[in-house]
Design a protein around this nucleic acid. Structure first.
Lengths: 196, 196
DNA sequence: TCCATTTTAAAATGAATGTTTTAGAATGAG
DNA sequence: CTCATTCTAAAACATTCATTTTAAAATGGA
């Protein structure tokens, strides 16, 4: 029957994801995708369809792997404040220092609120993050009524950090701010107000 | 001598600004700028140079008018918390509900940290916002040593709100979160801890 | 009036875009 | 082997892009 597929789909998706993360959807040409994935445009069109499909698959993969993976990695089996802190700090640990930012954040901004190929995945990604924050806060203060406000506040901070980091804002200052924020949270939890 | 310029430069800059705000730099064609400004491409090239110059002028104008204007409007001659609150809430008051977001935020994400036509203006704009927050917090707690952390936290929240709002996140939830945040700040200021 | 300049409209340019097609080599199952 | 399929490479396509040029009308100062 048919010749079997030579390449693995997953590394191709990862390469496309990185490319979109760096240059956005509009800023990424098919030629750039050829370079990034090592596939010819023929193969890309053959296996995916068109550019939109590649992007959507890459974005979905980003949600499943990067977003969910990060949450899983930092927020499970650990005290919630510690987990949240390391989750936030992990945003600043891009290996090459080249802050490509978050594909979710970048897509949200690039496409806006109009109907687009990104809308559903962006909403789903934000929802995943917000729910993870909610769960962590519940573990912290099960009885407080303003858990939702705090979860949204964390989501907002999270997205803001990604914007500033992407723009080249000094990592050290962001790191200090994050640590300050979670130090304060630990202080509140222990009912000790340290700051006079 | 020469024929005088027929159009006013400022409305043209405003129109270009709105267009870039809605569609980004890459997503805005010269044709779109013709439509938005009412000028022919001939006039645009004649009066500005090229697309990069138009964008840079529009971004500078955004900093001077929109960013500085908003700060001036909300943070002067008013109690700082009240001013900050109304500044944050004003982000959600886009007239048409079509959240074009902030040209600064959008440009930061679109161009990233690489050297680009936007880098200087983006940094300048963020700095303006951060300094405004710093000043407001100083008025609030002149003695606290962690003013910088709080100013950066406000900047981060501010940018995060702009991302979420641009993506179509429900305005009401964002409004509640903002109000909750500044209610808490007023509480802290009065040294009354309301939340148990 | 004349000249320099600015306007618009249109055409032209050359490059890049996304996509399809073609041609040829490779591969696996029957 | 054969046939269907997949690969790469290349060409072809129509479209869009930013930009320049052209031509013609308008305008203001000398």
């Amino acid at each position: 029957m048919p010749r079997s597929i030579e390449f693995q789909i997953e590394p191709v998706l990862v390469a496309a994801m990185e490319q979109f993360r760096h240059s956005g959807y509009g800023g990424t040409s098919i030629k750039a995708l050829e370079r990034a994935t090592g596939l010819s445009s023929g193969s890309l069109y053959n296996s995916f369809g068109d550019k939109d499909v590649i992007f959507q698959k890459a974005l979905t993969h980003y949600n499943q792997m990067v977003v969910a993976g990060r949450i899983e990695k930092h927020l499970t089996g650990r005290p919630p404040v510690e987990g949240l802190r390391s989750l936030f700090l992990s945003l600043l640990d891009e290996p090459d220092g080249g802050s490509s930012g978050c594909l979710l954040t970048n897509s949200a901004v690039e496409f806006g609120s109009d109907d687009s190929i990104a809308k559903n995945s962006v909403q789903a990604g934000f929802e995943m993050q917000e729910k993870a924050f909610l769960k962590a806060i519940e573990q912290l203060h099960p009885s407080v009524p303003d858990i939702e406000q705090n979860a949204l506040r964390f989501l907002t901070l999270y997205q803001g950090i990604l914007v500033l980091f992407r723009s080249g804002y000094p990592t050290l200052k962001l790191r200090n701010m994050i640590n300050y924020e979670f130090d304060k949270l630990e202080g509140e939890k222990n009912d000790k107000k340290i700051v006079g």
